[in-house]
């Protein structure tokens, strides 16, 4: 049944002439479908497994593949600010807004991306931190800049230092020529939300297959309860925190009472 559906799909694609005949199929699986941030969360390592399968048994499998996994966290708008000395003190003088950029971005591959495909292919498919689209608000426009623009460089550098952005060139290991595995590190302060996994398979410098997967990072238990309360019921939350302070103060004065 599956095979027939795939065949029909293939026929449709061939008929449209949009893509070259797909010879390989990617099957991937994540170690978890959900990451829960609870009170003892200190970061986590996800594992993605996958196999390369010949599609409909048409073409024999090639001998050498390259694989790139791009993980993107929930989108955020962030402002990069630049300090300058004004009257002897360091002040933020200039800033640039990065609009709806991934809060987490990991590019994992089996070898440096520059060796996998020609530059324009990488650019078009947004592979690697240098090629990923990071739109900035410049005046009325929103556009990505050249990759060595100072604000973009600083933004990527800071995000890499924080562990939010990373490019690991030896992260994908081929267990057999067609079975691969990669580990995705999530730092302890990862943003919550939906994470997308974009897996691209290359052979001889061209993309031959692509698949997607996703997981959700959520706060759980007391962490979720507190965060929700702070966001949705600010006044009540503040009042409870204040009462908690008074109670703590009162208990201390009772416990340590001495005369």
């Amino acid at each position: 049944m599956m095979r027939r559906t795939a065949l029909i799909l293939l026929a449709v694609i061939l008929a449209c002439g949009a893509e070259p005949a797909v010879a390989e199929r990617l099957v991937v699986s994540l170690s978890n479908q959900r990451v829960a941030i609870n009170s003892n969360f200190v970061g986590e390592e996800l594992v993605l497994f996958g196999t390369i399968e010949p599609d409909a048994g048409k073409t024999p499998l090639r001998s050498a593949y390259d694989l790139v996994v791009t993980v993107t966290g929930p989108r955020q708008t962030l402002r990069t600010r630049r300090k300058q000395r004004v009257l002897g003190i360091w002040v933020n003088v200039d800033s640039r807004e990065f609009v709806r950029v991934p809060s987490y971005l990991a590019v994992l591959s089996n070898r440096p991306v520059a060796q996998i495909a020609p530059r324009d292919t990488l650019r078009r498919l947004q592979i690697g931190l240098d090629n990923f689209l990071l739109p900035q608000r410049i005046g009325p426009d929103i556009a990505d800049t050249v990759r060595d623009e100072p604000f973009r460089l600083a933004f990527v550098r800071l995000q890499v230092r924080q562990g939010f952005y990373r490019e690991i060139t030896a992260a994908v290991t081929f267990l057999t020529p067609t079975v691969f595995r990669t580990a995705i590190p999530l730092p302890a302060d990862v943003p919550t939300g939906k994470y997308g996994f974009d897996v691209k398979l290359f052979a001889e410098g061209a993309m031959v297959a692509r698949t997607n997967s996703a997981l959700e990072v959520t706060k759980a238990g007391i962490e979720q309860y507190v965060a929700d309360a702070a966001r949705d019921h600010g006044f009540l939350y503040g009042l409870v925190t204040m009462l908690m302070a008074l109670l703590t103060g009162w208990i201390a004065s009772v416990v340590f009472k001495r005369d």
Binding site: T77, R81, N92, F151
Partner: peptide
Amino acid sequence: DDLYSIRYVRGE
């Protein structure tokens, strides 16, 4: 150490 810094503006 670094003249640049990042500030969170808003989420989705």
